[in-house]
């Protein structure tokens, strides 16, 4: 177990470095500098700006400076918001995004796993078909389509919930964005859970458990649930990535001041360092989460630990 952890941990390092390098050199390879988009500036001002942002140094040195900064938690200055550093913007936006994302993940897991298990236990019956059709719909409708429809129904027509904004961050404001963000993931997790549960229920060791005379709920909860949930555990990494991606549009639609919204604004304003910083930050988050998921998987599956 210890060796396995160390191995996984060492594996995450290169991934992160490759990500940072890729993003950084892509930015530098892009035609035109960060100050091209705005109205032209005099060469002197330009040189000053470039010196201030260390753009006059050799590329590798810039990269080294950037990585060194990252290690200290410094993502550099924002080009578009001169009064802010990227670190400050992340510190401001991320807690908001995290709150919505965490609720959405919780909802997706609870609802998705429950629906998947119910469908598997009613395999090939009406309830199964219904749940799976709903799940397919959930997967097929992008959350930027679901979100406006939710607003139209619950905010405009029924007037039950606010149609946008973050307010005080209370549940009333979070409800619609969280649901819109979670729905495709609920659908995906439900399908995943059903598939693996059906497979597990067919396996010989479940027959053994039934042959022992165990009650049905013990068979499902004690013998089938854990192996059936392993694929869901593996999916937690990709799910996080999907939620982060989704949060970008959801925050845009609901006007929530999260990191995703900053990211889109940065992308549209060609705020290079902000975009780069957010990509690196989220990339690191995903890599670390994948690592945690791998370790969690090893804890759950006794056969992995010893290999």
């Amino acid at each position: 177990m210890f060796r396995y952890s160390v191995k996984r941990f060492l594996g995450a390092g290169p991934t992160l470095l490759i990500l940072v390098a890729l993003a950084f050199f892509l930015m530098r390879a892009a035609p035109g500098g960060p100050f091209d988009a705005e109205r032209p500036v005099s060469p002197a001002v330009r040189a000053n700006l470039e010196r201030a942002y260390h753009l006059d140094e050799p590329l590798l040195q810039q990269f080294g400076r950037y990585v060194a900064g990252l290690v200290r938690g410094d993502f550099g200055p924002s080009f578009q918001y001169p009064d802010y550093t990227v670190t400050e913007l992340i510190r401001e936006g991320f807690p908001v995004s995290l709150r919505i994302g965490a609720f959405a993940m919780l909802l997706a897991l609870l609802a998705g796993v429950t629906a998947g298990i119910l469908a598997a236990l009613r395999q090939n019956r009406a309830a199964d078909a219904g749940i799976m059709a709903a799940a397919m719909t959930g997967i097929s409708i992008p959350n930027f389509v679901i979100a406006p429809l939710l607003i139209l129904l619950f905010a405009v027509h029924l007037d039950w919930l606010p149609g946008g904004g973050y307010g005080d961050g209370s549940l009333r404001y979070l409800m619609l964005p969280v649901v819109a963000l979670a729905l495709p993931q609920i659908a995906y997790i439900a399908r995943l859970t059903r598939g693996s549960m059906v497979e597990v229920l067919r396996s010989p060791f479940i027959r053994t458990a039934r042959a022992k005379g165990l009650p049905a709920h013990t068979v499902v909860l004690r013998h089938a649930l854990k192996p059936a949930l392993l694929p869901v555990v593996s999916y937690l990494g990709p799910a996080t990535a999907a939620l982060i991606t989704g949060s970008v549009v959801i925050e845009q639609i609901f006007g929530i001041p999260g990191l995703g919204r900053f990211f889109v604004q940065g992308a549209l304003n060609r705020d290079y360092t902000l975009v780069l910083g957010v990509v690196v930050f989220y990339g690191a988050l995903i890599v670390v989460l994948n690592l945690i998921v791998d370790l969690l998987y090893a804890v759950l599956d006794p056969r992995v630990r010893y290999t």
Partner: peptide, 21 residues
């Protein structure tokens, strides 16, 4: 492939579109 799986690719595409138009 394993390493690439961990990459937030969609963000890289956005980077690409931001940087290269």
């Amino acid at each position: 492939v394993d390493i690439l799986y961990a990459m937030p690719f969609l963000f890289l595409v956005i980077l690409l579109l931001v940087f290269f138009g």
